[in-house]
Amino acid sequence: MSRRLEGKRLLIATHNAGKLKEIGALLAPYGIECLSAGALGLAEPEETGTTFVENAILKARAAAKAAQMPALADDSGLSVAALGGRPGVYTADWAERQWFEGPSGRDWYMAMGKVEGLLCELGPAADRSCWFSCVLALAWPDGDSAVYEGRVEGTYSWPPRGTMGFGYDPVFVPQGKDITFAELAPEEKHRISHRADAFAKLVADQFGA
């Protein structure tokens, strides 16, 4: 058992509204009030880690120290078998616009297209199996931390389908389903996602008997 959370307020180290909403929904049953790093105006630290674990801990510790309260960071991404596990830890980078491409921000449709383009180059026999990974890092202002890892298997589908979810959700068909994450009702996605898997471990550790 890791160090337990005290109090009912938790800083979520993200500027992503979709991610904040999903994490907030998962923690709501435990009476946790979620605040975002974006709402507090905290800077996003440079993600210099080469693994999901390293980046999650880096973000959680930076937020906890800046706000002087416990912070939870999520580092997650999509890995495609035929691409040697890419984009993996660089999942969000593949959606980053360059300065000459217009307004800053993330273009997820462009990122999904990059993956599809690489798969097409490999031909129709390319292995489209893929998985989402999620690492949750919980950190305290004194630097103490705990890590929880989750994963969900699936298939890379094209073209994108669905309007719910975010990121690569429109091209990810979870194992045992015939629709994408972006077509699933949010409550169903919350039950089977990589983030749900990681949260189940966090909940058992932090709120279990």
Rank of each mutant, 00 (worst) to 15 (best):
S2A: 15
R3Y: 14
R4D: 00
L5A: 10
L10R: 09
L11F: 01
I12Y: 01
I12W: 01
I12M: 05
N16H: 12
A17T: 06
G18M: 05
L20K: 12
L20R: 13
E22I: 10
I23P: 02
I23C: 02
I23F: 04
A25F: 03
L26C: 12
Y30H: 15
Y30A: 02
I32S: 03
L35T: 06
A37D: 09
G38M: 10
A39P: 00
A39T: 08
L42N: 12
L42S: 13
A43L: 12
E44A: 15
P45I: 07
T51M: 09
E54V: 08
N55V: 10
A56Q: 04
A56W: 02
A56R: 02
K59E: 12
A60M: 07
A66Q: 11
A67Q: 06
A71Q: 01
D75M: 03
S76Q: 11
G77C: 11
L78K: 07
L78T: 08
S79Q: 13
L83F: 07
G84R: 07
G85D: 05
R86E: 14
P87W: 06
G88M: 03
G88R: 05
V89T: 10
V89D: 03
D93R: 15
W94L: 08
A95M: 08
E96H: 07
R97F: 05
Q98E: 14
W99K: 14
E101P: 01
E101C: 00
E101M: 00
S104V: 07
S104W: 02
G105I: 06
R106N: 08
Y109D: 12
Y109K: 13
A111C: 11
G113I: 03
K114Q: 14
G117R: 08
C120Y: 00
C120R: 15
E121C: 07
E121R: 14
L122P: 02
G123N: 11
A125F: 02
D127N: 15
C130K: 08
C130H: 04
W131C: 15
A137G: 14
L138D: 01
D142R: 02
A146G: 04
Y148Q: 04
E149R: 13
E149C: 11
G150Q: 04
R151W: 01
V152R: 09
E153P: 01
T155L: 04
Y156S: 11
P159M: 00
P159D: 01
R161D: 02
T163H: 09
T163W: 05
G165Q: 10
G165E: 05
F166A: 01
Y168D: 10
Y168K: 13
P170C: 11
F172V: 06
F172T: 13
P174W: 04
P174S: 05
K177D: 11
K177N: 06
F181Q: 00
A182L: 11
A182W: 02
E183Y: 12
L184Y: 10
A185Y: 08
E187V: 12
K189W: 05
H190P: 00
R191V: 12
R191A: 15
H194D: 03
A196D: 10
D197M: 14
F199T: 07
V203Y: 00
V203K: 07
F207N: 14
A209R: 09
